Amino acid sequence: MKLQRNGRTKALAIGAVALVSSLSLAACGSDNNNSTSSNSTASGSASQAAAIACASKQANLLAAGSTAQGNAIDVWKNAYGAACSGTTLNYNGVGSGAGVAQFNQGKVAFAGTDFALKPADVDASKAVCTGGGQAIDLPMVAGLVSIVYNVDGVSHLTLDGPTTAKIFNGAITKWNDPAIAALNPGVTLPDTAITTFHRSDDSGTSYNLTSYFAKTSNGAWTAAPSKTWAGQGGQSAAGSAGVASQIKATKGSIGYVELSYAQINNLSSASISTGASKAVDPTAANAAITLGNSTVVGTGNDLALQLDYGTKAENAYPIVLVTYEVACDKGNNPATLDSLKSFLNYTISDAGQQAIATKGYVPLPSAISTKVKAAIGNLA
């Protein structure tokens, strides 16, 4: 057990030294010399700093995983780095699957994943969570999966589960297909071929989208929910940023990204017909309705959530996601444990959750965040 812990410490230390400059540069702030903007930024930074209690024993942190939470991590690491100069956080957005793999190899202090750990992942974590510990899911970043498109002349588009599944499975190939037209009366749809983009990497965003298909496609999507894309045809791109970039550059295209990437890239997002009285727009407020109805299905300090992808509640956006931070319940690296708990305590705080709301994320309901705070306090 001692060799496992020392190996984990060595991996973290080497990586942190190699990447030590990343957060320092990010924390230096903007080059914008506008005084009003600077004052506003300073005020916001002061508010964030007040919510941060730095670790008594600070240490550099390495983390990896979900790209869906990448923009949230950027906000958090800048605020945290400004308040706690003795801690550098480097987060590598390699996708949920790769992040969990790196955690179970002892390469990172925590991982981000857009789907709860599988039993095999938990079993593998026991090799690096010393003293009988194992990996647990801590909900931290909530959001929604936005169906983004780039179609000339179409500023508003409505889709539903069966139609969207058929598009991504290659069964619907033209934008003026009768199934799409039926959902969009009065909209002029072009006789243009549809180009679909999906994730090339193992992705929690793919898992959440295909979970929605499994609940709502009426058999149009035959594969089980999976982090590995199983649709027919289409083109692939790495990460949410890669998909967003391809949609922006390709006329007649459609793909899926976390809402913050749609907003940053000024991409059009489809509304979803769920069976409610009207189609539901992809907004944080509408996603919050679905998230508020989620239930904890994990045991002990594991807080894996069950999400209702098939919701028909009024104004409830169905394609939601929760990114979990994965850590050991006990047996975390003692060299980084204090900093790990300090950083996670900030991210789950009211200030931390509100800080990412402007980036297209959804603050976690207090019923969930209260449980996460308690679980972080129990990390050992």
Rank of each mutant, 00 (worst) to 15 (best):
N78Q: 14
A79E: 02
A82W: 15
A82I: 13
A83T: 02
C84G: 10
C84W: 05
C84Q: 09
S85C: 02
S85M: 02
G86N: 06
G86E: 05
G86V: 08
G86F: 06
T87N: 04
L89M: 12
N90D: 10
N90E: 08
N90P: 08
Y91M: 12
N92M: 07
N92S: 11
V94Y: 00
G95W: 00
A98M: 06
G99R: 06
G99Y: 15
Q102W: 08
Q102L: 09
N104W: 00
Q105F: 02
G106Q: 03
G106C: 01
G106Y: 00
F110R: 11
F110M: 10
F110I: 10
G112C: 10
T113Q: 09
D114N: 15
A116E: 08
A116V: 05
L117K: 01
L117Q: 03
K118R: 11
A120C: 05
D121T: 00
V122I: 11
A127R: 08
A127N: 07
C129Y: 15
C129G: 08
G131L: 06
Q134E: 12
I136E: 04
L138H: 12
P139K: 03
P139S: 04
M140K: 13
M140W: 00
V141Y: 14
A142Y: 07
A142M: 09
A142P: 05
A142G: 09
I147L: 13
Y149L: 06
Y149A: 04
Y149H: 08
Y149Q: 07
N150P: 09
V151Q: 07
D152Y: 10
H156Q: 13
L157E: 04
L157C: 06
T158N: 06
L159F: 04
D160Y: 08
G161F: 09
G161L: 10
P162F: 15
T163F: 10
A165Q: 13
I167A: 13
F168V: 15
F168I: 15
N169V: 11
G170N: 00
G170P: 02
A171F: 11
A171R: 14
A171V: 11
I172T: 13
T173K: 14
K174S: 13
W175F: 08
W175Y: 08
D177E: 10
P178I: 12
I180Q: 02
I180K: 00
A181T: 15
N184P: 10
G186R: 14
V187D: 10
T188I: 09
T188G: 11
L189D: 07
P190D: 03
P190C: 02
D191I: 01
T192L: 07
T192M: 05
A193K: 03
I194N: 01
T196V: 13
T196D: 09
F197Q: 11
H198C: 12
H198I: 12
R199Y: 15
S200I: 11
S200K: 11
D201R: 01
D201T: 01
S203G: 01
S203F: 06
G204V: 01
